Simulated scan of single mutants.
Amino acid sequence: MKSEDIPFEGGPMDGRVLSVALGPTGHPPKTYRIPVPDPDGGPATVLVYRRVPRGHSRRLGLIQGWKYLHDPDDSSGGGLRWPWSKPAGAPGAARTATPDDAGPDDANE
């Protein structure tokens, strides 16, 4: 499996470089979660880092590499997002049909 040395910025991992396994597309994961055990035996704290471009080429604007930035308030929820799914905050995302909704055939009754 291929891996790449990727720098981390911000948070407790600031300035460190870790070897991160690449996915089937040749890119590192979009989020990198690091569980940190509690010294008192409590629940582990999870550090979340987001993948961002390290830089772009001048001529074509291609991404030169990746780095991870610390994301203290992780809003992704950690679940998978499919391309055909509605956004989590969309107004009609959790709407269900109610008896008050009139369909086109119900209008003439």
Score class of each variant (00 low, 15 high):
Ser19Cys: 14
Ser85Cys: 14
Thr31Met: 05
Gly79Gln: 13
Thr98Arg: 13
Ala21Lys: 06
Pro43Cys: 10
Pro12Gln: 14
Pro12Met: 11
Gly42Tyr: 11
Asp74Asn: 14
Ala44Ile: 07
Asp101Cys: 09
Ala90Tyr: 10
Trp82Pro: 01
Trp82Met: 04
Gly92Pro: 00
Ala88Arg: 08
Ala93Phe: 00
Gly103Tyr: 00
Pro83Gly: 09
His70Ile: 03
Asp74Lys: 03
Tyr32Ala: 02
Gly42Met: 06
Gly10Gln: 02
Arg50His: 15
Pro43Lys: 03
Ser75Asp: 03
Leu80Tyr: 00
Asn108Arg: 12
Met1Asp: 04
Ile6Val: 09
Asn108Trp: 12
Leu69Asp: 09
Thr45Phe: 04
Gly41Cys: 11
Gly78Val: 07
Ser85Gln: 15
Asp71Met: 08
Glu109Pro: 12
Gly55Tyr: 12
Asp106Thr: 05
Trp66Gly: 09
Asp74Gly: 05
Ala102Thr: 09
Tyr49Val: 03
Pro35Asp: 08
Arg54Ala: 15
Ser57His: 02
Thr98Pro: 06
Asp40Trp: 11
Gly23Met: 02
Lys30Asp: 13
Asp101Ala: 08
Ala90Ile: 10
Arg33Thr: 07
Ala93Met: 02
Ala97Val: 12
Ile6Tyr: 07
Ala88Ile: 12
Glu109Lys: 02
Thr98Leu: 14
Pro104Lys: 14
Pro7Phe: 04
Arg59Ser: 10
Ile63Leu: 03
Asp71Gly: 03
Leu47Lys: 02
Gly79Asn: 11
Thr98Phe: 03
Asp100Gly: 05
Val36Trp: 03
Phe8Trp: 05
Pro29Thr: 13
Pro39Glu: 13
Trp84Cys: 04
Ala107Val: 11
Leu18Asn: 05
Leu69Thr: 11
Ala44Ser: 10
Asp73Asn: 00
Gly11Tyr: 04
Gly103Phe: 01
Gly78Ser: 01
Tyr68Gln: 06
Arg54Leu: 15
His27Cys: 06
Gly92Phe: 08
Gly10Cys: 12
Pro104Thr: 12
Leu62Val: 14
Gly79Val: 13
Arg58Cys: 12
Pro29Arg: 14
Gly23Cys: 07
Ala102Leu: 13
Arg59Glu: 15
Asp100Ser: 08
Ala107Cys: 04
Pro43Met: 00
Ala88Lys: 14
Glu4Val: 04
Thr25Gly: 04
Leu18Pro: 06
Asp105Pro: 01
Arg33Cys: 07
